[in-house]
């Protein structure tokens, strides 16, 4: 194998980092800088992508994350709320005894032991090496077993034909889908759309980063503050954690 010439790669990487730094400057204190993964390299288990959501900073009427996800991924309302896919949703919670109410966004939790991956008959539901749980729509047969298995009701079935999809996010009738952690953006050193929208709206409730990197902002927070995984009793080791539930 000939020696790889890294100079062009380094130039592009540096240029990318500089542009990203300038452009995300307002919220830079909250975000991890995802290390550049060159397009030709495979995702590796050296990283584990995760999210930390602070429910106490989440305002009940706000839907910025949901809207951004819809715009980014082409998940739009078709007027059939019962069959429309929802990759992320705001849940309003109220404690039964105390009456304390708060809200939080719920999406695919990208578990390390995903029940949806266990039950998929063809292996279309899979966990990528860096922890993102995805549906390979090339081999999904639309049996919806993963939807039965998910404890978080994260998955949706596409009940209708779709047109004019975002070329970065192929999705179509007859397959099951869920939040991809904006994998097409993550692979491009960007944040998921919901996280960016939350930061842009100055709510700062959502933080994205590498759970395997002890120096990342998200790892430091999880090591400092009390965070919970939803349905922790199932021991799924979720990639998305919450504060303030």
């Amino acid at each position: 194998m000939s020696k790889v010439d890294n100079s062009r790669r380094n130039f592009i990487g540096a240029g990318a980092v500089a542009t990203a730094g300038l452009v995300i400057a307002p919220g830079v204190t909250l975000f991890d800088m995802a290390n550049a993964k060159p397009a030709g390299e495979a995702a590796s288990s050296a990283k584990r992508w995760g999210m930390l959501i602070d429910s106490s900073k989440c305002t009940p009427g706000c839907n910025d994350c949901v809207t951004a996800c819809g715009k980014e991924n082409g998940v739009a309302s078709t007027g059939h709320p019962q069959t429309d896919p929802q990759w992320i949703r705001k849940i309003e919670l109220k404690e039964l005894k105390s009456g304390r109410s708060h809200s939080l966004p719920m999406m695919c939790q990208h578990c390390a032991e995903p029940p949806c991956v266990d039950v998929c008959p063809t292996g279309a539901s899979f966990k990528r090496a860096d922890g993102i749980v995805l549906v390979d729509r090339h081999i999904c047969i639309g049996c919806r077993y993963c939807m039965m298995a998910c404890p978080y009701k994260a998955r949706s079935f596409v009940h209708e034909e779709h047109h004019d999809q975002n070329p970065d996010v192929p999705r179509g009738k007859g397959c099951v889908e869920a939040c991809t952690l904006c994998v097409h953006r993550v692979d491009n050193d960007q944040q998921p759309a919901c996280v960016e929208a939350c930061a842009a709206g100055n709510k700062d409730a959502m933080l994205f980063g590498d759970l395997n990197d002890p120096n990342s902002e998200i790892s430091k927070r999880i090591a400092t503050y009390a965070t919970t995984q939803v349905r922790a009793d199932l021991a799924l080791n979720t990639g998305v954690r919450y504060q303030g539930i």
Partner: peptide, 17 residues
Amino acid sequence: AMHPIVAPAAQPGDKDK
């Protein structure tokens, strides 16, 4: 051609570098 639920303000850092 996409029809978003609500058209939000343009997000910084959206574009492919």
